[in-house]
Design a protein around this nucleic acid. Structure first.
Lengths: 129, 129
DNA sequence: TACAACGTGCTACACATGTAACACAGACAC
DNA sequence: GTGTCTGTGTTACATGTGTAGCACGTTGTA
Protein backbone atom coordinates (compact mmCIF):
# COMPACT_ATOMS: atom_id res chain seq x y z
CA UNK A 1 0.00 0.00 0.00
CA UNK A 2 2.88 2.37 0.31
CA UNK A 3 4.27 3.08 -3.12
CA UNK A 4 7.95 3.64 -3.62
CA UNK A 5 10.52 4.32 -0.93
CA UNK A 6 12.10 7.74 -1.01
CA UNK A 7 15.79 8.46 -1.41
CA UNK A 8 16.63 8.12 2.24
CA UNK A 9 14.88 4.83 2.50
CA UNK A 10 16.54 3.51 -0.61
CA UNK A 11 19.93 4.28 0.87
CA UNK A 12 19.11 2.22 3.94
CA UNK A 13 17.50 -0.59 2.01
CA UNK A 14 20.42 -0.92 -0.37
CA UNK A 15 22.72 -1.23 2.58
CA UNK A 16 20.58 -3.86 4.25
CA UNK A 17 20.15 -5.83 1.04
CA UNK A 18 23.89 -5.97 0.66
CA UNK A 19 24.89 -6.49 4.27
CA UNK A 20 21.95 -8.30 5.77
CA UNK A 21 20.81 -7.72 9.31
CA UNK A 22 22.59 -4.77 10.87
CA UNK A 23 22.45 -2.49 13.85
CA UNK A 24 21.61 1.16 13.43
CA UNK A 25 25.23 1.98 14.04
CA UNK A 26 26.37 -0.35 11.29
CA UNK A 27 23.87 1.03 8.86
CA UNK A 28 24.92 4.51 9.80
CA UNK A 29 28.58 3.83 9.22
CA UNK A 30 27.66 2.33 5.89
CA UNK A 31 25.57 5.19 4.58
CA UNK A 32 26.89 8.30 6.25
CA UNK A 33 29.37 9.01 3.50
CA UNK A 34 26.62 9.02 0.94
CA UNK A 35 23.94 10.68 3.05
CA UNK A 36 25.86 12.93 5.38
CA UNK A 37 23.42 12.11 8.16
CA UNK A 38 24.16 12.30 11.84
CA UNK A 39 23.71 9.05 13.68
CA UNK A 40 20.52 10.42 15.14
CA UNK A 41 19.09 10.98 11.70
CA UNK A 42 20.01 7.49 10.58
CA UNK A 43 18.16 6.08 13.57
CA UNK A 44 15.09 8.16 12.86
CA UNK A 45 14.98 7.08 9.24
CA UNK A 46 15.35 3.43 10.20
CA UNK A 47 12.69 3.69 12.88
CA UNK A 48 10.24 5.26 10.52
CA UNK A 49 10.91 2.47 8.07
CA UNK A 50 10.21 -0.03 10.83
CA UNK A 51 6.90 1.72 11.47
CA UNK A 52 6.04 1.19 7.85
CA UNK A 53 7.27 -2.38 8.02
CA UNK A 54 9.93 -1.87 5.42
CA UNK A 55 12.50 -3.20 7.83
CA UNK A 56 12.08 -5.72 10.61
CA UNK A 57 13.49 -5.05 14.00
CA UNK A 58 14.88 -7.75 16.21
CA UNK A 59 16.62 -7.56 19.56
CA UNK A 60 19.86 -9.43 19.88
CA UNK A 61 21.09 -9.40 23.47
CA UNK A 62 19.38 -6.11 24.01
CA UNK A 63 20.67 -4.52 20.87
CA UNK A 64 18.36 -3.70 18.01
CA UNK A 65 19.22 -5.06 14.60
CA UNK A 66 17.29 -4.41 11.45
CA UNK A 67 16.79 -6.32 8.24
CA UNK A 68 15.07 -5.36 5.02
CA UNK A 69 11.47 -6.52 5.08
CA UNK A 70 10.86 -5.88 1.41
CA UNK A 71 12.62 -7.71 -1.36
CA UNK A 72 15.15 -6.01 -3.51
CA UNK A 73 13.63 -7.10 -6.78
CA UNK A 74 10.15 -6.10 -5.68
CA UNK A 75 11.23 -2.62 -4.68
CA UNK A 76 13.57 -1.95 -7.58
CA UNK A 77 11.09 -3.49 -9.98
CA UNK A 78 8.36 -1.31 -8.59
CA UNK A 79 10.41 1.77 -9.24
CA UNK A 80 11.14 0.73 -12.79
CA UNK A 81 7.50 -0.08 -13.39
CA UNK A 82 6.44 3.26 -12.02
CA UNK A 83 8.83 5.19 -14.18
CA UNK A 84 8.14 3.30 -17.38
CA UNK A 85 4.42 2.71 -17.02
CA UNK A 86 3.21 5.74 -15.14
CA UNK A 87 5.66 8.44 -16.14
CA UNK A 88 6.68 7.42 -19.63
CA UNK A 89 3.32 5.72 -20.20
CA UNK A 90 4.89 2.87 -22.07
CA UNK A 91 2.65 -0.08 -22.73
CA UNK A 92 3.64 -3.50 -23.92
CA UNK A 93 6.77 -5.52 -23.41
CA UNK A 94 9.72 -3.83 -21.76
CA UNK A 95 13.34 -4.91 -22.11
CA UNK A 96 15.45 -4.78 -18.98
CA UNK A 97 18.82 -4.79 -20.65
CA UNK A 98 19.26 -1.28 -19.37
CA UNK A 99 19.70 -2.63 -15.87
CA UNK A 100 22.09 -5.39 -16.72
CA UNK A 101 25.00 -3.32 -15.52
CA UNK A 102 23.68 -2.88 -12.01
CA UNK A 103 25.91 -4.23 -9.27
CA UNK A 104 22.78 -4.87 -7.25
CA UNK A 105 21.27 -7.46 -9.53
CA UNK A 106 22.40 -10.96 -10.42
CA UNK A 107 21.31 -12.43 -13.73
CA UNK A 108 18.62 -14.34 -11.94
CA UNK A 109 17.33 -11.25 -10.24
CA UNK A 110 17.34 -9.39 -13.51
CA UNK A 111 15.09 -12.09 -14.92
CA UNK A 112 12.81 -11.79 -11.96
CA UNK A 113 12.69 -8.06 -12.44
CA UNK A 114 11.85 -8.49 -16.08
CA UNK A 115 8.99 -10.73 -15.20
CA UNK A 116 7.80 -8.36 -12.57
CA UNK A 117 7.57 -5.33 -14.79
CA UNK A 118 6.11 -7.29 -17.65
CA UNK A 119 3.52 -9.32 -15.82
CA UNK A 120 2.97 -7.76 -12.41
CA UNK A 121 -0.06 -6.29 -13.73
CA UNK A 122 -1.14 -2.98 -14.92
CA UNK A 123 -2.68 -1.50 -11.90
CA UNK A 124 -1.83 -1.09 -8.28
CA UNK A 125 -1.82 -4.59 -6.91
CA UNK A 126 0.74 -4.91 -4.22
CA UNK A 127 3.33 -7.59 -4.63
CA UNK A 128 4.87 -6.62 -1.35
CA UNK A 129 7.60 -8.58 0.33
CA UNK B 1 18.55 22.82 -7.95
CA UNK B 2 15.48 20.93 -7.00
CA UNK B 3 15.86 17.30 -7.97
CA UNK B 4 12.97 15.41 -9.49
CA UNK B 5 9.34 16.49 -9.59
CA UNK B 6 6.93 14.38 -7.61
CA UNK B 7 3.97 12.49 -8.99
CA UNK B 8 1.58 15.42 -8.83
CA UNK B 9 3.99 17.69 -10.57
CA UNK B 10 4.69 15.14 -13.26
CA UNK B 11 0.99 14.93 -14.01
CA UNK B 12 0.83 18.67 -14.55
CA UNK B 13 4.06 18.84 -16.51
CA UNK B 14 3.04 16.04 -18.83
CA UNK B 15 -0.16 17.90 -19.56
CA UNK B 16 1.63 21.16 -20.23
CA UNK B 17 4.26 19.51 -22.41
CA UNK B 18 1.52 18.04 -24.53
CA UNK B 19 -0.89 20.95 -24.60
CA UNK B 20 1.33 23.97 -24.22
CA UNK B 21 0.28 27.04 -22.31
CA UNK B 22 -2.92 26.44 -20.41
CA UNK B 23 -5.10 27.96 -17.75
CA UNK B 24 -5.50 26.27 -14.42
CA UNK B 25 -8.98 25.24 -15.46
CA UNK B 26 -7.70 23.60 -18.61
CA UNK B 27 -4.99 21.78 -16.79
CA UNK B 28 -7.51 20.68 -14.24
CA UNK B 29 -9.90 19.30 -16.81
CA UNK B 30 -7.00 17.49 -18.38
CA UNK B 31 -5.68 15.79 -15.27
CA UNK B 32 -8.64 15.38 -12.98
CA UNK B 33 -9.49 11.96 -14.34
CA UNK B 34 -6.05 10.72 -13.51
CA UNK B 35 -5.55 12.60 -10.29
CA UNK B 36 -9.01 12.91 -8.84
CA UNK B 37 -8.15 16.40 -7.63
CA UNK B 38 -10.62 19.14 -6.95
CA UNK B 39 -10.06 22.30 -8.95
CA UNK B 40 -8.74 23.92 -5.81
CA UNK B 41 -6.09 21.26 -5.48
CA UNK B 42 -5.05 21.58 -9.07
CA UNK B 43 -4.57 25.29 -8.56
CA UNK B 44 -2.49 24.76 -5.46
CA UNK B 45 -0.23 22.28 -7.17
CA UNK B 46 0.28 24.59 -10.13
CA UNK B 47 0.97 27.57 -7.90
CA UNK B 48 3.54 25.69 -5.91
CA UNK B 49 5.19 24.67 -9.15
CA UNK B 50 5.27 28.31 -10.17
CA UNK B 51 6.97 29.14 -6.87
CA UNK B 52 9.63 26.59 -7.75
CA UNK B 53 9.81 27.96 -11.29
CA UNK B 54 8.83 24.72 -12.85
CA UNK B 55 6.04 26.50 -14.68
CA UNK B 56 5.88 30.07 -15.86
CA UNK B 57 2.85 32.15 -15.21
CA UNK B 58 1.59 34.74 -17.63
CA UNK B 59 -1.53 36.87 -17.57
CA UNK B 60 -3.61 36.91 -20.69
CA UNK B 61 -6.41 39.47 -20.44
CA UNK B 62 -6.44 39.05 -16.71
CA UNK B 63 -6.48 35.29 -16.80
CA UNK B 64 -3.49 33.31 -15.65
CA UNK B 65 -2.01 30.79 -18.01
CA UNK B 66 0.85 28.51 -17.27
CA UNK B 67 3.52 26.83 -19.35
CA UNK B 68 6.14 24.28 -18.46
CA UNK B 69 9.38 26.02 -17.55
CA UNK B 70 11.46 22.88 -17.62
CA UNK B 71 12.07 20.82 -20.70
CA UNK B 72 10.54 17.42 -21.09
CA UNK B 73 13.77 15.72 -21.99
CA UNK B 74 15.62 17.32 -19.13
CA UNK B 75 13.07 16.26 -16.58
CA UNK B 76 12.44 12.78 -17.89
CA UNK B 77 16.13 12.27 -18.49
CA UNK B 78 16.86 13.38 -14.98
CA UNK B 79 14.51 10.80 -13.62
CA UNK B 80 16.08 8.07 -15.70
CA UNK B 81 19.52 9.14 -14.66
CA UNK B 82 18.55 9.16 -11.03
CA UNK B 83 17.10 5.70 -11.18
CA UNK B 84 19.90 4.14 -13.14
CA UNK B 85 22.86 5.96 -11.68
CA UNK B 86 21.84 6.58 -8.12
CA UNK B 87 19.49 3.73 -7.35
CA UNK B 88 20.80 0.94 -9.54
CA UNK B 89 24.33 2.36 -9.38
CA UNK B 90 25.00 1.55 -12.98
CA UNK B 91 28.12 3.05 -14.45
CA UNK B 92 29.10 3.23 -18.07
CA UNK B 93 27.02 3.49 -21.20
CA UNK B 94 23.27 3.12 -20.89
CA UNK B 95 20.95 2.11 -23.71
CA UNK B 96 17.65 3.93 -23.91
CA UNK B 97 15.82 1.40 -26.02
CA UNK B 98 13.63 0.77 -23.02
CA UNK B 99 11.98 4.12 -23.53
CA UNK B 100 11.46 3.86 -27.23
CA UNK B 101 7.82 2.94 -26.71
CA UNK B 102 6.95 6.10 -24.84
CA UNK B 103 4.27 8.24 -26.44
CA UNK B 104 5.95 11.25 -24.91
CA UNK B 105 9.18 11.02 -26.84
CA UNK B 106 9.92 11.46 -30.49
CA UNK B 107 12.95 9.73 -31.96
CA UNK B 108 14.86 12.94 -31.76
CA UNK B 109 13.96 13.43 -28.14
CA UNK B 110 14.96 9.88 -27.40
CA UNK B 111 18.37 10.66 -28.82
CA UNK B 112 18.61 13.76 -26.70
CA UNK B 113 17.67 11.74 -23.67
CA UNK B 114 20.31 9.19 -24.46
CA UNK B 115 22.91 11.88 -24.67
CA UNK B 116 21.72 13.40 -21.48
CA UNK B 117 21.98 10.29 -19.38
CA UNK B 118 25.25 9.29 -20.95
CA UNK B 119 27.05 12.57 -20.85
CA UNK B 120 25.28 14.95 -18.51
CA UNK B 121 27.79 14.15 -16.07
CA UNK B 122 28.03 12.06 -13.05
CA UNK B 123 27.20 14.45 -10.33
CA UNK B 124 24.60 17.03 -9.60
CA UNK B 125 25.18 19.66 -12.21
CA UNK B 126 21.92 21.19 -13.17
CA UNK B 127 20.96 21.15 -16.79
CA UNK B 128 17.76 22.93 -15.99
CA UNK B 129 15.44 24.36 -18.55
C1' DT C 1 -30.00 45.09 -12.44
C1' DA C 2 -29.60 41.09 -9.47
C1' DC C 3 -27.88 36.48 -9.49
C1' DA C 4 -24.97 32.74 -10.89
C1' DA C 5 -20.25 31.30 -12.61
C1' DC C 6 -15.75 31.56 -12.63
C1' DG C 7 -11.10 33.33 -11.66
C1' DT C 8 -8.06 35.20 -8.00
C1' DG C 9 -5.66 35.73 -3.69
C1' DC C 10 -5.32 33.76 0.71
C1' DT C 11 -5.71 30.39 4.34
C1' DA C 12 -5.93 25.77 6.54
C1' DC C 13 -4.71 21.53 8.31
C1' DA C 14 -2.87 16.71 8.50
C1' DC C 15 0.68 13.74 7.41
C1' DA C 16 5.48 12.89 5.34
C1' DT C 17 10.29 13.85 5.37
C1' DG C 18 14.76 16.06 6.63
C1' DT C 19 17.38 16.64 10.29
C1' DA C 20 18.53 16.39 14.65
C1' DA C 21 18.95 16.89 20.21
C1' DC C 22 18.07 15.29 25.02
C1' DA C 23 17.87 12.34 28.93
C1' DC C 24 18.62 7.94 30.88
C1' DA C 25 20.56 3.16 31.63
C1' DG C 26 23.99 -0.42 31.08
C1' DA C 27 28.90 -1.67 29.88
C1' DC C 28 33.76 -0.84 29.97
C1' DA C 29 38.01 1.47 31.41
C1' DC C 30 40.77 3.01 35.19
C1' DG D 1 33.14 2.95 41.97
C1' DT D 2 33.16 6.93 38.86
C1' DG D 3 33.49 8.76 34.43
C1' DT D 4 32.82 7.81 29.49
C1' DC D 5 30.66 5.39 25.51
C1' DT D 6 27.03 3.78 23.29
C1' DG D 7 22.37 2.23 22.70
C1' DT D 8 17.49 3.33 23.63
C1' DG D 9 13.30 5.87 23.96
C1' DT D 10 11.37 10.25 23.19
C1' DT D 11 10.77 14.78 21.45
C1' DA D 12 11.35 18.78 18.25
C1' DC D 13 10.92 21.69 14.60
C1' DA D 14 11.08 23.28 9.62
C1' DT D 15 9.71 22.34 5.08
C1' DG D 16 7.22 19.55 1.61
C1' DT D 17 2.98 17.47 -0.09
C1' DG D 18 -1.93 16.12 -0.26
C1' DT D 19 -6.01 18.09 -0.30
C1' DA D 20 -8.98 21.46 -0.01
C1' DG D 21 -12.15 25.80 1.48
C1' DC D 22 -13.39 30.86 1.79
C1' DA D 23 -14.16 35.56 0.49
C1' DC D 24 -14.10 38.88 -3.04
C1' DG D 25 -14.35 40.93 -7.64
C1' DT D 26 -15.71 40.53 -12.55
C1' DT D 27 -18.68 39.08 -16.13
C1' DG D 28 -22.34 36.85 -18.63
C1' DT D 29 -27.30 36.20 -18.39
C1' DA D 30 -32.15 36.49 -17.51
Amino acid sequence: MSAQPNKSEIAVLKHLWTHGEQSAREVHDGVTDETGWSYSTTRTVINRMADKSWVNRRDVHGIAVFAAAVSKVTVLGGMVRDLTRKVFDIEGELPVSMFAGSPHLSDGELDELEQLINTASSGDEETAK
